[in-house]
Amino acid sequence: MPKKKFYGFHSGFAVQLNEFIEYKRSLGYVENSYFHLNSFDEFCADKYPDADELTSDIVTEWCAISDKGIINRCSQIREFARYLLSMGKQAYMYPATAIPKRNDGLPYIISQAEQSRFFDATDRRIYSKKSPIMEYTAPVVFRLMLGCGLRPREVVCLYRRHFDFNNGTIYIEDSKNHRDRRIAVSSDLMELCRRFDYIADVFFPERACFFPNKAGNPLSYPSLVYLFQKSWDLSGNDTGEGRPSLYSFRFTFATETLMRWIEEGRDIEAMIPYLSAYMGHVKFKDTYYYIKLLPDRIAKMKFMSVNGIIPEVNRNEWW
């Protein structure tokens, strides 16, 4: 039986925090996704050394601390409380309505120079005995996100059955607002996915998911975030304020597609419905949002040179 890992907690919640992290790891989450809990443990050890019940006073005081990480900090303590409640223990659940809303400003658009350095980093990712499939996953999963503008959770929910390699399409199932769609994919990108599928099949012959973790189960969202952050740091791109997120691939896809259409002289008004359907937007206004990002960027950025980001498809296949 494997020895249980201990994470250095020392407050009255040490055992419960340790069990919570182990539980999240069993679901595929990376342990450093919950680094705020280390600070929470220190906070409790200092101010509530005898406490072993997650009370309203403890949670409210912890969530009242104002800093740049307040949103994640409040969200993580809510998850911890939810876990305790599921285990039949008493715990105060901080109201979701009390958590400050994000104000991220304009989305981060990844420049072509940054893209080049990033994918160079993913392509030379070092082999890891703990998770050997990751050196093959990184080059493919992020190219797929950039080339198709997929949402992060759409990527981790992809299964092998969703890929039609003969017709060059991917079926996005039960996405945001429980909507399905089928997207056409460029031949080069589809061939890359086909090669990855073959390699992953060698590691996990019985797998159903397309992007597996080290155990052959679906790659989790936190693991995808961790893989992106490690690859970005390895790329040598800026790691300071305003660094990109996984959604930056989607933002970049949308704006570069629009700019390419402008350069080609296409009628943007007529093309918006196609881009909206491709990206899975419920309303056209969600797609029009990207147009306001164009004026300041047209003079600064080159257009994507890859043809076929949204290939011509039969209308019946599109919908």
Rank of each mutant, 00 (worst) to 15 (best):
P100V: 00
R117C: 08
R266K: 13
M259V: 00
S75F: 04
V155D: 04
K292H: 12
Y34M: 08
R207T: 06
P152W: 00
P311F: 01
S231I: 05
R160W: 01
A184W: 01
S86N: 13
L275S: 01
P295S: 10
N213G: 09
V140T: 14
W261A: 02
R73M: 05
V15R: 13
V225K: 08
Y221F: 12
P205M: 05
T255A: 02
F119V: 01
F9V: 07
K3F: 02
D296N: 14
R102K: 14
L246A: 06
N307H: 03
F211I: 03
S187E: 14
Y94P: 10
A184F: 04
F203S: 10
C193A: 09
Y83R: 01
N217V: 01
Y136K: 10
A96C: 08
R297Q: 12
D104T: 15
D180V: 02
F251C: 08
T287A: 07
L246P: 03
N213I: 01
A14F: 05
I99P: 05
N213P: 09
E269S: 11
V155C: 13
N103L: 12
I133Y: 04
P49K: 03
S248W: 00
C63R: 09
N314H: 14
I298N: 06
K24P: 10
R182Q: 11
A121F: 02
F142D: 04
A14W: 08
E269R: 14
L54G: 06
I21V: 14
T239L: 11
A277I: 08
R207V: 07
E42N: 11
D286P: 01
Y94S: 09
F303Y: 05
R266I: 00
I199Y: 00
G168I: 01
V313N: 06
F20T: 03
F43R: 09
G240C: 07
H281K: 03
S39F: 10
P218Y: 00
I133L: 07
D123G: 12
M259P: 06
I310D: 02
M93S: 08
L146C: 00
F40P: 12
T55F: 06
K89W: 02
L54E: 06
Y247N: 14
W232A: 03
K101S: 14
W318T: 07
S305K: 14
R124S: 13
E312Q: 11
Q90E: 13
R297G: 03
T257C: 09
A138F: 04
K68V: 07
F35R: 12
A81T: 02
W261K: 07
N32F: 01
P222D: 08
P95A: 05
M271W: 11
R195K: 14
M304H: 06
R125I: 10
P2K: 12
G216P: 02
K24R: 15
A208W: 00
N307K: 13
A270D: 13
R260K: 14
F251I: 00
R315W: 15
I172M: 03
E135G: 04
